[in-house]
Nucleic acid binder design. Structure first.
Length: 482
RNA sequence: UCCUGAGUAGCUCAAUGGCAGAGCAUUCGGCUGUUAACCGAAGGGUUGUAGGUUCGAGUCCUACCUCAGGAGCCA
C-alpha cells in the first residue's frame, strides 16, 4: 500500500480534509476540462463494481474509495473499492487532463472518490474488467499526516481488532460480512417458508435459563436483571401458543472463555416445535443447515474465493447427515485412543471435550449428529429417553473440519412432576420457574427445539480460524473497543 | 480460574550480557502494464511498567500490566 508524491503547496489543497470536489478545483486553464467532465459524469450511469460487467464498453460512474495505488512512471494504476468489490483503473498521463493525473497521483489511500471511466474487459485483470478513468472527484482526501493504518501487509491480531472499524474495509473482511448476512437471511428464510412464526424473547431476563453459565448482571431499577443467555424457555411458551416458532437475536455469556470459538455476545437462531420428538428435530436441523450452506454456495462463489474457502468441502453438505448415539461416539473415541489418534482417553459418562469433538467431526464429510447423551451431563429441561432413562433425548450437531458444536437441541420435559423435580434437583429457584411450569399445567405436549450459534456457523462455512472475524464487532473476554 | 507463549520504529519482526537493525509504511527522486509493483535516498526508538543483579541489561532475576493460544464451560 503506498502513496506517491506530495501535493504542491501553492495549490492549497494538501490535506484538504472534508473539502468536496477536489479534482474540480483546477485553475482557470482547466475550465474547459471541468465542464466537459461534468457532462460526462452527469450522463454516465452510476453502477457498482460487482455488476460492472454488464456495462462493458460503456462509460460509467462508481462511488467508493481508493483502495490501492501503483504507478509506473507516467502510468497510474489506482484500485477502487465500493463495498461490492474492487476494480483497477488505468490512467496514462498522456490520455487525461494534467489536473486529473496530478490529483490522482498524490491521492492518499482510502480517500473517498466518485470516479467515471470506460469499462474494458482485460485478461490481465483478476476480475476480468478494468476502468479507463476519464474523471475523478475527490469527496474527502485522507490527510497526509494520518495515513490509513491498515496496510496490505501482515498485521497482528491486537492491532487489527483495535482498528476493527477500519479493518472491515478490506476485501476479505467485507466478503465475510456479506456471507454472514446471507447465512442469517437463509436461516430465517428456512423457517419463514416452512410455517414458523418468529417470536423473539426478551433480552432482559429475571433469572438464568439454565443456571449453569455465568450471566451478565445489571441493575433493573431496584431489582437485579440479567442479559439473556438463551430464549429457549420463552419460545417454549410461544410454541405452545403458535405451534412452530423461532427466535433470532443476540445472546450473552459471561463465561471467561478465551478460545477461537467463544464470544461474550453472539447471535443465536432457535426454533421450537410443538408435538415434535427428537427424530423429527434432527430432520429439521439437517435440512436447515443444508439450506443455509446451499444458499451461500449459490450466492457467494466470488466472496468464498476472496476468503480462500475450499468450496468442495461445502458442496457435500446435503441432507441426510450421519447420526450416531453417544454410546457409538464413545466407542469411536475409545478406538481412536487405542490407536494413538487422540491424546486423552474419554471416560464413559462424561461430556465430550473439544479435542473429542474435533476428532469425531473429522471422521465425516458432513456435519455429524450425536444424540442421546447421559442425562447427568445435560440440562435439566431435557426429556429422558423412554428406552434408557439415564440418557437424554438431545442432539449436538458437530460441524466438519474440526469446527465443533454449532447446534445443541433436545426434546423438552413435558411432565409437570418430572420438571418440578429436576428444578429442585438442580437447586434452581422454583419461584422463578412457576411460569415455565405453567406450560406443563395447561395442555402440555411433547415439544423440541434447538439453537444454532450464527458465528460458529459462519466460521465453519467461511473456513475461518476464529469467530472474531465473523461478526462486525466481536465482544470477547479482553475486548469491548471499538 | 489454571497452563503455555509473546511484548523492541506507525506495522510485521531481528539483535551470543558488549555501538538498537531489516522489510513494509511515511517523505524525496526514477520508471508507460503494475498485480502486497519495482529501483535509489532520507527521517523515524524512554526496547510494556517498576525494582534488582552486573564494569555493562532489549537480553539474566522478581513483581505487575497487556495480548495471544489452549483447558474447563459452552453455541
Amino acid at each position: 500500500m503506498r502513496r506517491r508524491g506530495r501535493r504542491v503547496p501553492e495549490e492549497g489543497r494538501g490535506g484538504a480534509s472534508g473539502k468536496l470536489g477536489g479534482s474540480m478545483e483546477g485553475r482557470s486553464g482547466d475550465r474547459l476540462w471541468m465542464s466537459m467532465s461534468l457532462e460526462i459524469a452527469a450522463s454516465a450511469p452510476v453502477t457498482t463494481i460487482a455488476t460492472i460487467g454488464v456495462h462493458e464498453g460503456q462509460t460509467v460512474t462508481l462511488r467508493g474509495w481508493l483502495y490501492n495505488l501503483r504507478a509506473s512512471g507516467k502510468l497510474l494504476f489506482p484500485i477502487f473499492r465500493d463495498g461490492s468489490g474492487t476494480i483497477q483503473g488505468i490512467v496514462p498521463k498522456a490520455a487525461v487532463p494534467e489536473a486529473l493525473f496530478e490529483s490522482l497521483k498524490n491521492l492518499t489511500l482510502e480517500s473517498s472518490v466518485i470516479v467515471t471511466g470506460k469499462v474494458r474487459a482485460d485478461a490481465r485483470a483478476p476480475s476480468g474488467f478494468e476502468l479507463d478513468v476519464v474523471d475523478l472527484e475527490v469527496v474527502q482526501r485522507v490527510d497526509d499526516a494520518h495515513p490509513f493504518p491498515i496496510t496490505l501487509k501482515e498485521h497482528g491480531v491486537d492491532f487489527l481488532m483495535e482498528h476493527r472499524h477500519l479493518w472491515i474495509r478490506t476485501p476479505r473482511q467485507s466478503a465475510i460480512l456479506r456471507v454472514r448476512a446471507t447465512i442469517m437471511r437463509a436461516a430465517a428464510e428456512y423457517f419463514d417458508t416452512n410455517g414458523f412464526t418468529r417470536t423473539d424473547p426478551p433480552i432482559l431476563t429475571p433469572a438464568a435459563c439454565e443456571g449453569t453459565s455465568e450471566l451478565f448482571e445489571m441493575d433493573y431499577f431496584d431489582e437485579k436483571a440479567y442479559l439473556t443467555q438463551s430464549g429457549q424457555l420463552y419460545i417454549e411458551s410461544t410454541a405452545l401458543a403458535l405451534g412452530k416458532v423461532y427466535s433470532f437475536g443476540p445472546t450473552f455469556r459471561a463465561e471467561k472463555s478465551k478460545t477461537r470459538r467463544h464470544l461474550t455476545e453472539f447471535w443465536m437462531i432457535e426454533p421450537e416445535v410443538a408435538f415434535c420428538g427428537l427424530d423429527e428435530l434432527m430432520e429439521l436441523a439437517e435440512n436447515f443447515i443444508a439450506h443455509i450452506v446451499q444458499s451461500v454456495l449459490k450466492q457467494h462463489r466470488g466472496d468464498l474465493k476472496v476468503i480462500g474457502r475450499d468450496v468442495t468441502k461445502l458442496e457435500t453438505i446435503q441432507a441426510p447427515f450421519p447420526k450416531i448415539s453417544y454410546d457409538e461416539a464413545h466407542r469411536m473415541l475409545e478406538e481412536a485412543f487405542s490407536k494413538g489418534l487422540i491424546e486423552s482417553k474419554h471416560t464413559y459418562g462424561d461430556d465430550f471435550g473439544s479435542p473429542d469433538e474435533t476428532y469425531l467431526s473429522n471422521q465425516f464429510n458432513r456435519p455429524v449428529m450425536v444424540h442421546r447423551y447421559p442425562a447427568a451431563v445435560k440440562a435439566f429441561y431435557m426429556e429422558p429417553d423412554a428406552a434408557d432413562p439415564t440418557k437424554a433425548l438431545c442432539v449436538d450437531v458437530l460441524a466438519p473440519e474440526g469446527y465443533g458444536e454449532i447446534i445443541g437441541g433436545s426434546q423438552r420435559v413435558d411432565s409437570y412432576d418430572l420438571l418440578r423435580q429436576r428444578i429442585l434437583d438442580h437447586n434452581l429457584p422454583l419461584a422463578a420457574f412457576e411460569w415455565y411450569l405453567d406450560l406443563r399445567r395447561y395442555g402440555s405436549v411433547p415439544h423440541s427445539g434447538f439453537g444454532m450459534g450464527i458465528e460458529r456457523a459462519v466460521a465453519w462455512i467461511c473456513g475461518l480460524d476464529h469467530v472474531r472475524e465473523t461478526i462486525p464487532f466481536a465482544r470477547t473476554l479482553n475486548r469491548i473497543y471499538p
